[in-house]
Design a protein around this nucleic acid. Structure first.
Length: 944
RNA sequence: GGCCGAGUGGCGGAAUUGGCAGACGCUCAGGAUUUAAAAUCCUGUGUCCGAUAGGACGUGCGGGUUCGAGUCCCGCCUCGGCUACCA
């Protein structure tokens, strides 16, 4: 085997690692621990994408590197295997989703093993394993058993929930109901996308423009009793604890914005009989601001209570409970049809064309508590029922949305904030109500408050409202409680039972399944087709499953299933103790291995997955099941890998070239701007293109501009790279190395096949540096010698050790590889290559290209794997240079270079620079005003 | 619209603190080897002027700070990603 043959070497070492259990991790760390985690992949039928190995290689390099540095490394892999595609496949083929899921998992495992990642495969798990989701269900029961104590700011057992006397007085059922209302997992009516045409409930991403993605049937939003998780209770902690984790600022900001906390005030507007307004006010002044608004008041949330005097109308969401009460008989028809139309629109649609706001007048008026002024109440879908109180006071002069709406429906605009003189704001226009200004300024038209700066006004009005009993400070979050049920088959069943009465009707009493009865497995179904009711497929299960009887009471099982997020919320904990049947994770082991030290994955999970997992973790923490406040210490998001660069241009119907700058696109297609005639996209090869200035043009016709860019990989574009093919043609080591060499881990970068070929060339040179490639059998290159290494060779080695160690620590893999390339370029030119130097180099290469490294390590005389060999140690004394080259500048431009002793003094360096022949020439006619001497760096003469 | 990130040769990218711009790789060109090709090895490869020596320019654009700016400050432009009426 004279030539480098990755196929042979790679399968040999993969088999070796597997047989010898090289990467099996001990139950408990026996040295400093390091937990390195990859984001949980969904095992899709398409197999691995080249984006997957990018992060996986990065973590694998880190793990192999740290093992060699003596750390106890935990590096597991598994599958987030519940999900829609498997269910779709099941419906189409009428095979259980488990079958296709397991097939896909097997394929993923084959591909991952083929890339030589050093996972402890004994810890592999899938969310669909019954032994795994038993504990997902168990954690759900923990959530069900927990209420949030806002005084202690933590989750506590439901048994510790204080029950108010008035509830206790009513009886047991009322107490149970009270508890159910306070659990972290609770039932509520939430809107779902019900598609009558398909007879099923759809996920948001399956709905496009209010119609089903499949079949184009209309989709209506209807309320359905569903499980919710009270993540909002933890919003504050989820936000604050971000301060203590080592994540990029960008991701932290994304999470903060998603949580979106804002502080402001809730204000009640009176909507009852005007004659009773004064007595209402008196009552409020006496009893204060109630926790729930009474029927004849409309409660709004605002972050700008200082603009209360500018509220010229109010808006309530179409789903607001007061719509019916408020609507007058004359307006009833209009309002009813408006609200109905709104129910067919998704939140996304409502917000999509935010330019054209719509709404209708209810006919009713409310009284502004600040000044007693009567304002009209409108219904409009630009106000969302799910945020704040579902109602707003509209201040068109100081809110863009209200301004737009008021203009459209000719509602009064009253300026109450004077912007003063500032750029980009026309003060007079603002004061006249013809320009909207949402910044801070000085109050006007606000009664006694005139002249108060916004910041201060917010405070004083809040206090005044509190005294009046018409308002109170409030905090709101953009984050909503987590809709946790799905009307699907392929998910974890809820471990929940609904009690039935003698007639088989639900009593409203719910209970968790006993821990000893977990797991609740999915039932057998005849088929997976929708049954035409807005109810989950599990309702089709037979009675044995659906109607259990416990202690003589009969129950109906919960038929919703959990969303895909559930399983990925805690998988990192199960890896620590994957086969434990008594406990979701052994507390000793959890304490020893947590937290995750390094977590790498794509930015697509920056918000939801990470927020959900952190939420569960905090609940488990509060309930004493885990010991860390945060699960993921350090988070790194790998960049996206784009397809190969593409050049494109257009042609008209007569095959004339049309430059990309001359073409526009609309809904009908592409057309030439000049005359609107249709054009076609033509792909070009690199040699048909030339660069001109900043742009690319046709090589044959420089007047025609060509588009040159890389696109996201997609099936439809046909630019997807399959890792199987790369491994087959270049080897896994080349794929790993290339993905790391492309550029910084976190950057978006385009794929390049010739780049892959380039790193393959590097591995070929590594091979030939050590192996005699002309021999019949595997033997060392003649240049390999047991002689003592010379100073230059050692210097090269230690420079490489220094750079590779530093870069690997910092995840700067691309530059580490560049340094190794320099090493190889140097030694292929040397006739003497000391064995010990080669051995050290092979160890440096091992984390990056482990298969070839193992093979060369063996050839250089080792008997066992290098996986636990000590990392080469840097000897800095070998790096010391006796002479260095110093650039000499005149006014900052390099004019000459001199060689001087490395430890030369400042004065001597200046003298040496002055005496340089070239400098004497250049400085002869000039007066030197100043000399900057930076020892070891440079000399700069400043001349007149 | 908002937020985040990025603009450096033909391409991907490199450049501790402000201190030799373009490491390393690809591409391309020339040469060696070969009957020939592949593979391999050597040389060159930012732009412009110049036969060479050498010189000028050069990190998206316009300003600024500095002896010195890819790096710092101000104002723009372009591209990419995420997000979208959150009162």
């Amino acid at each position: 085997m004279p030539r480098y043959n990755p196929g042979q070497i790679e399968s040999k070492w993969q088999a070796y690692w597997e047989e010898n259990q090289t990467f099996k991790t001990a139950e408990m760390p026996d040295s400093e621990k390091l937990y390195v985690l990859d984001m949980f992949p969904y095992p899709s039928g398409n197999g691995l994408h080249v984006g997957h190995p990018e992060g996986y290689t990065a973590t694998d390099i880190t793990c192999r590197f740290e093992r060699m540095r003596g750390k106890s490394v935990l590096h597991p892999m598994g599958y987030d295997a519940f999900g829609l595609p498997a269910e779709e496949h099941a419906i189409k083929t009428n095979t259980p989703p488990r079958e296709s899921t397991e097939k896909n998992i097997a394929n993923f495992t084959r591909q991952l093993k083929m890339l030589g990642f050093s996972y402890d495969w004994n810890r592999c798990l899938a969310t669909t394993d019954v032994g795994y989701f038993k504990w997902t269900q168990w954690i759900f029961l923990v959530l069900f058993d927990t209420w949030f104590d806002s005084e202690q700011n933590k989750g506590r057992p439901i048994s510790e929930l204080p029950i108010p006397d008035e509830v206790n007085a009513v009886g047991e059922i009322a107490v149970a109901k009270y508890r159910d209302e306070h659990r972290l997992a609770y039932l509520d009516d939430a809107l779902v996308n019900w598609c009558a045409g398909l007879g099923t409930v759809l996920a948001n991403e399956e709905v496009i423009d209010g119609r089903s993605e499949r079949g184009n049937h209309p989709v209506q939003r209807i309320p359905l009793r569903q499980w919710m998780l009270r993540i909002t209770a933890y919003a504050d902690r989820l936000e604050k604890d971000l301060a203590d984790v080592n994540w990029s600022e960008g991701i932290k900001k994304l999470q903060r914005d998603w949580i979106g906390s804002s502080t402001g005030a809730e204000v009640d507007f009176y909507i009852g009989d005007p004659a009773a307004y004064d007595s209402w006010k008196e009552a409020r002044a006496e009893f204060g601001f109630p926790s729930k608004a009474e029927e004849h008041t409309l409660r709004v949330y605002t972050t700008r209570p200082d603009t209360l005097y500018g509220a010229t109308y109010m808006v309530i969401a179409p789903e607001h409970p007061s719509v019916d009460v408020l609507t007058t008989t004359e307006q009833a028809e209009t309002v009813k049809s408006y609200c109905e139309k709104a129910s067919f629109k998704s939140d996304r649609e409502r917000t999509e064309d935010s330019k054209s706001k719509t709404g209708v007048f209810t006919g009713a008026y409310a009284i502004n508590p600040a000044n007693g002024v009567k304002v009209p109440v409108w219904v409009a879908d630009y106000v969302l029922i799910s945020y704040g109180t579902g109602a707003i006071m509209a201040v068109p002069a100081h809110d863009e949305r209200d301004y737009e709406f008021a203009n459209k429906y000719e509602i009064d605009i009253l300026a109450v904030v004077d912007p003063g003189d500032r750029k980009s704001v026309d003060r007079n226009a603002v004061l006249a109500g013809t320009q909207c200004f949402s910044g801070f300024g000085i109050a006007v038209n606000s009664g006694d408050y005139n002249g108060t700066p916004t910041e201060q006004f917010k405070e004083t009005i809040r206090e005044a409202l509190a005294v009046q009993g018409t308002g109170a400070s409030a905090v709101n979050y953009k984050l909503r409680d987590w809709l946790f049920s799905r009307q699907r088959f392929w998910g974890e069943p809820f471990p929940i039972l609904h009690e039935l009465n003698a007639k088989g009707e639900p009593t409203g009493v719910i209970r968790g399944v006993d821990e000893s009865d977990l797991p609740v497995d999915l039932p057998y179904l005849e088929d997976y087709k929708p049954h035409g009711r807005p109810e989950p497929p599990l309702a089709k299960a037979d009675d044995d499953w659906l109607y259990p009887v416990i202690d003589g009471k009969s129950y109906r099982r919960e038929t919703n299933t959990m969303p895909q997020w559930a399983g990925s919320c805690w998988y990192y904990l199960r890896y620590i103790d994957p086969t434990n049947e008594d406990c979701f994770v052994d507390p000793e082991k959890e304490k020893a291995w947590m937290p995750v030290d390094l977590y790498i994955g794509g930015a697509e999970h920056a918000v939801l997955h990470l927020l959900y997992a952190r939420f569960w973790h905090k609940v488990l923490y509060d309930r004493g099941h885990v010991t860390t406040v945060e699960p993921f210490q350090r988070l790194v998001n790998q960049g996206m890998i784009l397809g190969e660069m593409e050049f494109s241009v257009f042609q008209d119907e007569y095959l004339n070239w049309v430059g990309v700058d001359k073409v526009s696109r609309d809904n009908d297609g592409l057309y030439r701007q000049e005359d609107g005639s249709e054009v076609q996209l033509i792909k070009l090869t690199e040699d048909q293109v030339a660069k001109q200035g900043d742009t690319f043009v046709l090589a044959d016709d420089e007047a025609v501009r060509v588009d040159a860019r890389s696109f996201k990989m997609s099936k439809s574009r046909g630019n997807v790279i399959n890792p199987d093919e790369i491994v087959e043609n270049y080897g896994a080591d080349s794929l790993r190395l290339y993905e790391m060499f492309m550029g910084p881990l976190t950057a978006t970068k385009p794929w390049s096949m010739s780049g892959v070929n380039g790193v393959k060339g590097f591995l070929d040179r590594v091979w030939r540096m050590i192996v005699n490639d002309r021999a019949e059998s595997l033997e060392l290159n003649e240049a390999i010698s047991d002689k003592q290494a010379e100073a230059d060779a050692l210097k090269m080695l230690h420079k490489t050790i220094q750079a590779v160690t530093r870069d690997t620590e910092n995840l700067d893999f691309n530059t580490a590889i560049a340094r190794m390339m320099e090493f190889v370029n140097y030694f292929t030119k040397q006739n003497v290559r000391p064995r010990s130097v080669m051995q050290s180099f092979v160890l440096l290469l091992a984390p990056y290209a482990p298969h070839i490294a193992e093979e060369l390590w063996e050839l250089l005389g080792a008997e066992a794997t290098l996986a636990y060999e000590p990392w080469p140690e840097l000897d800095e004394s070998l790096l010391v240079e006796s002479t260095i080259e110093i650039p000499i500048q005149i006014k900052g431009k390099v004019k000459s270079r001199i060689s001087v002793a490395a430890d030369i003094s400042k004065d001597d360096l200046e003298q040496a620079a002055r005496h340089d022949e070239k400098m004497q020439e250049l400085l002869a006619d000039n007066e030197v005003v100043k000399v900057i001497v930076v020892p070891g760096r440079l000399v700069n003469f400043v001349t007149k």
